[in-house]
Amino acid sequence: MSHVASMAVEEPARDRGFEMYNAKLGMWVFLLSEVMFFTSLIGAYIILRFAHPDQFAGPGEVLNVPLTAMNTFLLICSSVTMVKAFAALQHDDQKGLKLWLLATIVMGASFVGVQVYEYIHLSHIGFVPNAEAYSAAGGAIYGSTFYLMTGFHGLHVTIGVLCLIWILWKANRGAFHSKRVAGVEAMGLYWHFVDLVWIVLFTIVYLI
């Protein structure tokens, strides 16, 4: 029997889970794992902070909140441009796709740049991971938690930027069109996730 016919009898029986193609579902699943990763870091931070409130400096005492607020805004904008890029792709607007991807890359990269600048500045004033001078009680966990959490988020952004560059390169080779969106869409999911994590980190590390 022709397989069209065979399809007809089978497709109802065929249960494909959530109507989602592999790359997209895979990314969702992977992000679940990422959530748990940041949960462990943030959980540790919360436990330590409740155990030793006196070891943490108040908001703005050490860290430059306005600068980072600006940086946060930058990252949020980059999420918007990512959405734009995907929208462009769905309308087969190749030019738009590339431009918006480029914009996302630029903003992501500058976010990392600002973070590096911040690190350099902080280390100049002696605020390093094992610095004891910066908490009332002379413990080093303030620096420890700050660098580990922001550092690993920064690492995620950096990896994201690299992937974006690679996606852009492929877009240039015309790898995507409205029927082939997976790479861009999965990339988008990751990028929005990293953005979301930062909003949480910014709140608990800088603002509270």
């Binding site: 109507e19 790359a23 969106v181 869409e185």
Partner: peptide, 23 residues
């Protein structure tokens, strides 16, 4: 229906993505 070596059914559409995944 198809144990006899005839190729697999048509994809049901939402599978396009897997392609890049593998490149």
């Amino acid at each position: 229906p198809r144990m006899a070596g005839s190729p697999a059914p048509e994809p049901t559409g939402f599978s396009t993505g897997a392609h890049e995944e593998e490149e």
